[in-house]
């Protein structure tokens, strides 16, 4: 028996909106510690890892570990039917082939339940070691989204370079080139507008903008995004999900030609 009640149901709506274009089908893993997911895009170049810790739910009952295979587009369709301020409850029986999403309005005057069929999904989990990164950039998520969107009108790839001077995003295409440099800015008055760069060593890596743009669908979840880089390793683009967890996107760097 699984029953997860999330007062901030709008968070789950935003999580699904940020996943559904990258991954078609995925297993949500439910355990005593939380509600999580690890899935790759169809080309196995990008991976998303989601964790919503059990403490973040108003009520969290998970009698035994369960894996719920869901089509993320269909799950997003159902969650779109919830209002942003609805309380969302996810329910499933151990042997059931369906999951129920219950939406309650904040004053309890409207209660809806949507039942969705589950799927059997063969998924391969990758072991992601804890890594020390050469550079970690924390910046406003909307700024990062704007940069990825702007650069993708000019080129297909972005070179992210971190030096003491700041973080540089560069692209090149048929019509020309573009470079955007963001300098460190502690923004003490408005921490959500800060750009903080922790650098052990300068690092420069190239990534496909198509995936970066997909990751920025998570922008409504958090004011800040963290971009962690090391030479010859996948980048980690992380958005915090309120106080309850995170959504992390991993993207393999392109090999320089």
């Amino acid at each position: 028996m699984l029953e997860l009640r999330l007062v901030q149901g709008g968070l789950l709506k935003k999580v699904l909106e940020s996943l559904k274009d990258l991954v078609n089908d995925a297993n949500f893993d439910c355990s005593a510690s939380g509600f999580s997911l690890q899935a790759m895009d169809s080309s196995h170049v990008a991976l998303v890892a989601l964790l919503l810790r059990s403490e973040g739910f108003e009520h969290y009952r998970c009698d035994r570990n369960l894996s719920l295979g869901m089509n993320l587009n269909n799950m997003a369709k159902m969650l779109k039917c919830a209002a942003n301020d609805d309380i969302v409850t996810i329910k499933a029986d151990d042997a059931s082939d369906s999951v129920t999403f219950m939406f309650e309005s904040p004053n309890q005057d409207k209660i809806a339940d949507f039942e969705m069929k589950l799927m059997d999904i063969d998924s391969e989990h990758l072991g992601i070691p804890e890594a020390e990164f050469q550079a970690i950039v924390r910046m406003p998520s909307a700024e990062f989204a704007r940069i990825c969107k702007d650069l993708s009108t000019i080129g297909d790839t972005v070179v992210i370079s971190v030096t003491k001077e700041g973080v540089k995003f560069s692209t090149r295409g048929d019509i020309g080139t573009a470079n955007i440099v963001c300098r460190q800015n502690p923004s003490i008055d408005k921490p959500e507008e800060a750009t903080i760069i922790e650098m052990e060593e300068p690092v420069s890596l190239t990534f496909a903008l198509r995936y970066m743009n997909s990751f920025t669908k998570a922008t409504p979840l958090a004011n800040q995004v963290t971009i962690s880089l090391s030479a010859d390793l996948p980048v980690v683009v992380e958005y915090r999900v309120a106080e309850m967890g995170y959504i992390r996107f991993y993207l393999a760097p392109k090999i320089e030609e």
Binding site: L233, K254, E257
Partner: peptide, 14 residues
């Protein structure tokens, strides 16, 4: 040439 490696080049299956 495809210069986009897959994630399996970096992370092993669990």
């Amino acid at each position: 040439a495809d210069n986009q490696p897959r994630l399996s080049a970096f992370f092993a299956p669990k």
